[in-house]
Nucleic acid binder design. Structure first.
Length: 332
DNA sequence: CGGATTTGACCTTT
DNA sequence: AAAGGTCAAATCCG
């Protein structure tokens, strides 16, 4: 029985100021120089510098590609790696680099919330399996033109921890075993292990692996590995390493990290749109940061797991918390 | 009894 | 105005 999923990111982004590229590249140049100086020195510092270089490179690419015109951003679907992984560098102390030109770019009036679609098949035709987070259903609605209603869920810890993550689950018209799931926002909650007796530190890894061993497999469809690794089953910052360390040794477990080939068209994403280089170019700045974090996930998360630390809250959501419009509406 | 789900009403967005 | 999204009272369930 195959469980499959795809990520369709709904964020649009990208500035269009070509002149910024020079500034960005200058930053990169300086960072590379510093990195060269520190090679053999502080490992942490090298990692930070590397991540900053990565981020700046992404931004530069984004600037170049977006200023070359060719797209309006409307309805553009692309894979992305922003599935709620807490950025390992969100706690990075003041770097100066991340306060670069983009900080001064005028803020979008309406900050688009992270939106993240996934398609999941469930073997029994009942509800999709646990994705590692606890959800509370708060509504259901018939959707025009759709055979099946859409269920609305929010994080169970919305009130206790202020976690604003939500998801919508809707059974597909065509295949009753397929579900479209749209995730909104990031989990900022810290999940407690369900049972103290569980040897595994990470409850999400447990539920995930359990889903794998109950006849499900997770398979990416026509997506680059980077995007594949951002499926909602990896929402916790501490989950991926656990899964990787536990799932990859088993050959029969089809881990997203193994970059399964594209085999299906039921995602509605043509192979052409899956070209990672092209797609990545249009990722907004925040997504670039997410993916940068993804690159370094292994080390950072390994450290987290080794320290038995709970998942760090996604500091990225701070942007949403501090959104001027949100604040304004709060006082309205 | 407490927490989760159901479901029609109400609010928001287009 | 209508469709989508959320609220909350009633209900269910352990």
């Amino acid at each position: 029985m195959a469980r499959s999923m795809e990520i369709v990111d709904g964020n649009n982004g990208g500035g269009s100021h070509g002149g910024l590229v020079v500034t960005e590249l200058s930053h990169i140049k300086e960072l590379v120089r510093q990195l060269d100086v520190h090679l053999g020195g502080s490992h942490e510092l090298c990692k930070i510098l590397a991540s900053q270089i990565f981020s700046l490179t992404e931004r530069s690419i984004s600037i170049i590609t977006s200023s070359s015109g060719s797209l309006d951003g409307g309805g553009l679907k692309r894979s992305a790696a922003n599935a709620g992984l807490a950025s390992p560098f969100s706690a990075t102390p003041t770097s100066g680099v991340t306060d670069g030109p983009f900080k001064n770019a005028k803020k979008r009036k309406v900050m688009e919330k992270k939106r993240h679609q996934v398609r999941v098949s469930s073997p029994a035709g009942d509800n999709p399996v646990d994705d590692g987070h606890s959800w509370r259903k708060y509504g259901q609605k018939e959707i025009l033109g759709a055979k099946n209603p859409r269920g609305y869920y929010r994080c169970t810890h919305r009130h206790s921890q202020g976690c604003m993550a939500t998801k919508q689950v809707q059974r597909t018209d065509e295949d009753s075993t397929l579900f479209d799931i749209i995730y909104h926002g990031e989990h900022t909650c810290v999940q407690r292990p369900a049972t103290a007796a569980a040897p595994e530190h990470n409850p999400e890894a447990n539920s995930f692996l359990q889903s794998l061993t109950t006849g499900l497999t997770v398979k990416t469809e026509g997506l680059p590995p980077l995007a594949a690794a951002t499926a909602p089953f990896y929402l916790s910052s501490s989950t991926p390493a656990s899964i990787r360390s536990m799932a990859t040794p088993g050959a029969e477990l089809r881990s997203p990290f193994s970059a399964a080939p594209s085999t299906s068209e039921n995602w509605g994403v043509s192979p052409a749109t899956s070209d990672s280089n092209h797609v990545v170019s249009y990722l907004p700045f925040e997504d670039a940061e997410w993916r940068r974090g993804q690159n370094e996930l292994q080390e950072v998360v390994s450290a987290l797991v080794a320290a038995s630390a709970p998942p760090a809250p996604a500091m990225d959501s701070l942007d949403e918390l501090l959104d001027i419009d949100d604040i304004a509406s709060f006082f309205a």
